[in-house]
Design a binder for these strands. Structure first.
Lengths: 134, 134
DNA sequence: AACTGATCGTCAGGAGGGCTGATCATCAGC
DNA sequence: GCTGATGATCAGCCCTCCTGACGATCAGTT
């Protein structure tokens, strides 16, 4: 009954995931985008805003607003880099670390449930990576 | 290097597909959304606007604008239903049929190429359907 | 025939994401 | 000390989606 168009399938699968994620993360005061930013910041050495944007493949002008929101909630801090004073290095606060860790657990559990209908969820994930050329 | 977040993967795979589709369909004066509407209209008996919207799972208020565009280009026609004069039955014109058929061939070829990196593209497609609960 | 409630299509408007172009501060190289 | 490039920010536009309201029409009831 449904369309076999690939765009349709991808779009609505993404919509379902986004909806479930938004609901699951709401108690943590986050949405999927927020968590993506936190995870980029949490993974390794401090990053400038542009580097965060590049990792997430979001536009450079969008990342500022996202960080604004996280900063207002006390989850991240901007710090002028001493080496290059143009750069805003973004780091997690301790509250940000706590929120990130519990939200990550929620995300992992949610993704596991989301892929449960598949025989091999990991292969589906690997297929997506292949389609991104990685 | 890339994120393992499912939302990230789905979002950017969809973005790549959309970009490729937009480029491939441009010579036909269509984009992916237009083609989706045409295919809903082409598949079987005449549908009202609401039925088209339901098939594509798009909002009822969006479908009107999409049909406006297609009607301006002479690809579809609105007709008041004789049985229920509230309903706008949407049908393809002959030009719409020609455009739809050639655009469909373009879409099929593009989706085939798009899924080429995968060992089993059909299984990937089936996985997407499973995730939509179909 | 008249009333009520529901449905179809349309419109205005807002929210959100994505992008461009301009600007300012800062850096690196000459 | 110039010049060009880079990081961050801002204003603004476009597109998509959704809500709420409206008029027209239908179906069921009285």
């Amino acid at each position: 009954m449904a369309s076999d168009r690939l765009g349709y399938l991808l779009k609505h699968v993404l919509a379902r995931l986004t909806e479930a994620q938004t609901e699951a993360l709401a108690p943590h005061g986050l949405n999927g985008r927020d968590l993506a930013v936190l995870s980029a910041i949490a993974s390794g050495e401090p990053l400038s805003q542009l580097e965060v944007a590049a990792r997430l493949r979001v536009d450079r002008t969008s990342i500022g607003d996202l960080i604004d929101g996280l900063e207002e909630r006390g989850l991240v801090e901007r710090r002028r880099s001493a080496e290059d004073r143009r750069r805003n290095v973004v780091v997690l606060t301790t509250a940000g670390e706590r929120t990130f860790e519990s939200a990550e657990r929620v995300r992992h559990e949610l993704e596991r449930e989301f892929l449960a209908p598949l025989r091999d969820g990991d292969r589906f994930r690997a297929d997506l990576r292949l389609l991104l050329g990685e």
